[in-house]
Lab assay of single mutants.
Amino acid sequence: VAMCDYCKLQKIIKETVRFSGVDKPFCSEVCKFLSA
């Protein structure tokens, strides 16, 4: 469980994407796409 980078809620992380050398955790595909 970690904080989703988009919705800022403590959730089970399903996706982690690396932006500019920094790992960004996301709880769902939706949050990942909305943050892009």
Rank of each mutant, 00 (worst) to 15 (best):
V1W: 04
V1G: 07
A2T: 02
A2M: 13
A2W: 03
A2R: 04
A2H: 03
A2E: 08
M3P: 05
M3W: 00
C4K: 12
C4L: 01
C4E: 02
C4I: 13
C4G: 02
D5L: 12
D5I: 06
Y6N: 07
Y6F: 13
C7R: 06
C7S: 04
C7Q: 11
C7E: 02
K8Y: 04
K8D: 01
K8L: 01
K8G: 07
K8T: 01
L9E: 15
L9I: 10
L9D: 13
L9W: 01
L9K: 13
L9A: 12
L9V: 08
Q10F: 15
Q10K: 14
Q10P: 11
Q10R: 11
Q10E: 14
Q10C: 03
K11M: 07
K11W: 05
K11P: 08
I12L: 11
I12M: 15
I12Q: 14
I12H: 01
I12C: 15
I12P: 14
I12V: 11
I13T: 11
I13E: 12
I13D: 05
I13K: 08
K14R: 04
K14M: 14
K14Q: 09
E15R: 07
E15T: 10
E15L: 01
E15P: 10
T16A: 03
T16H: 14
T16P: 05
T16S: 04
T16E: 06
T16C: 11
T16W: 02
V17M: 14
V17I: 09
V17S: 05
V17E: 09
V17K: 09
V17T: 12
V17Q: 04
V17F: 03
R18Q: 10
R18D: 13
R18Y: 04
R18V: 09
R18T: 11
R18N: 13
R18P: 11
R18L: 06
R18A: 07
F19E: 13
F19L: 13
F19C: 15
F19T: 13
F19V: 13
F19Q: 13
F19S: 14
F19M: 15
S20C: 09
S20W: 01
S20H: 15
S20P: 05
G21V: 01
G21D: 11
G21M: 10
G21R: 03
G21E: 03
V22C: 04
V22I: 13
V22K: 06
V22M: 15
V22T: 10
D23P: 05
D23L: 09
D23G: 04
D23E: 11
D23A: 07
D23F: 03
D23T: 07
K24D: 05
K24R: 09
K24E: 11
K24W: 00
K24P: 02
P25T: 05
P25Q: 13
P25A: 03
P25W: 09
F26S: 01
F26L: 06
F26Q: 05
F26P: 08
F26C: 12
F26E: 06
F26H: 12
C27W: 01
C27G: 01
C27V: 00
C27A: 00
C27P: 05
C27R: 03
C27F: 00
C27M: 04
C27L: 00
C27H: 02
S28H: 06
S28R: 00
S28D: 04
E29T: 11
E29R: 08
E29A: 07
E29G: 06
E29Q: 07
E29W: 02
E29H: 09
E29F: 00
V30C: 15
V30Q: 15
V30F: 04
V30L: 10
V30G: 10
C31R: 00
C31P: 00
C31Q: 00
C31H: 00
K32F: 03
K32W: 01
K32D: 00
K32T: 10
K32P: 01
K32Q: 08
K32S: 01
F33V: 12
F33N: 14
F33E: 14
F33L: 13
F33P: 10
F33Q: 11
F33W: 13
F33R: 14
L34K: 12
L34E: 11
L34R: 12
L34A: 14
S35T: 00
S35L: 00
S35G: 11
S35E: 02
S35A: 08
S35N: 04
S35W: 08
A36C: 00
A36R: 08
A36N: 06
A36S: 08
A36Q: 13
A36D: 15
A36W: 06
